[in-house]
């Protein structure tokens, strides 16, 4: 089951660049939350702060508090422990090219030292079904490389891989931006299905996508969170002039 996320006074830097300024936000559990904004506004940096991926860049720095469920992720645990609870799907599909489809899905467990075959088989099947990929790949699970699938299938494979570790939160950083429209709509359907079980945070530059899948939407601009509200409010009655300008296409 998903858990909520509470962010207080979050600041982040890349080298000298101050990419996030004083972010305060509460993301509810078991729902989809969309983050929109022009490129370079800090929305990707923000999600990368939610599972401590931000700090894999040596020049990166973070200050502030992020609570996932009741865990203060910057004080209570190591980065790897957080990332096992908070899964991530990236902008471009990135399956492990040397691994079979099966091993790709099982990788989060296997690479962390879990080797019970029976449970792994069960988890792989379940995750691929959740990602709506099972029927397409069930015949060559161990024969084909993850890299042999089409772009859309690869991205669903990556979603299955993230789901296999049974995360509480699923972060998606523009998961459909590299895909064709048909694959994009499949991914959106998936998000719609998955949000009952997981808390999903999705970064997107596509406003329709936000409107389609998310209960709540946040608008980022120049490293600041301008507005966070139920999606319908953001798109019909935004409080802030800048949000209004953005969704009506005045800039960005």
């Amino acid at each position: 089951m998903g858990v909520g996320i509470e962010v207080k006074n979050l600041n982040a830097w890349y080298g000298q660049t101050h990419t996030l300024r004083d972010i305060n936000l509460t993301i509810p559990a078991n729902s989809a939350t969309a983050l929109i904004g022009p490129s370079g506004c800090g929305k990707s940096t923000f999600v990368r702060c939610l599972n401590r991926m931000h700090e894999t860049n040596p020049s990166a720095r973070v200050e502030g508090m992020v609570k996932v469920g009741d865990i203060d992720i910057y004080n209570d645990a190591a980065p790897v422990e957080i990332r096992r609870r908070v899964g991530m799907v990236f902008q471009r599909p990135n399956p492990f090219p040397t691994m079979s489809i099966y091993d790709n899905v099982a990788s989060g467990l296997k690479l962390n030292g879990f080797h019970n075959r029976k449970v792994l088989d069960e988890v792989v099947e379940r995750s691929l079904k959740q990602a709506a990929l099972w029927n397409e790949v069930k015949d060559d699970l161990k024969k084909k490389s993850g890299a042999s699938l089409s772009g859309g299938q690869q991205q669903r494979l990556c979603i299955a891989r993230a789901l296999a570790v049974d995360p509480e939160v699923l972060l998606m950083d523009e998961p459909a931006s590299a895909l064709d429209p048909a694959s994009t709509s499949k991914i959106e359907d998936l998000i719609f299905e998955l949000k009952d079980e997981y808390s999903i945070v999705i970064v997107t530059h596509n406003m329709q996508q936000a409107a389609r899948v998310a209960e709540n939407t946040g608008f980022f601009l120049n490293g600041q969170l301008v507005e966070f509200a139920p999606t319908s409010t953001i798109f019909t009655k935004p409080h802030d002039k800048r949000t209004e300008d953005y969704i009506t296409g005045r800039f960005g």
Binding site: A78, L109, V119, R126, K129, A132, N135, V165, D166
Partner: peptide, 25 residues
């Protein structure tokens, strides 16, 4: 979506195992 119906929860063994796994430091 065809074949999308997923029955039941993820095996509890997984979460239990992963939560016990240390920091790897």
């Amino acid at each position: 979506v065809a074949g999308h119906a997923v029955e039941g929860k993820a095996p509890a063994a997984i979460r239990e195992f992963l939560n016990k796994r240390g920091s790897g430091a």
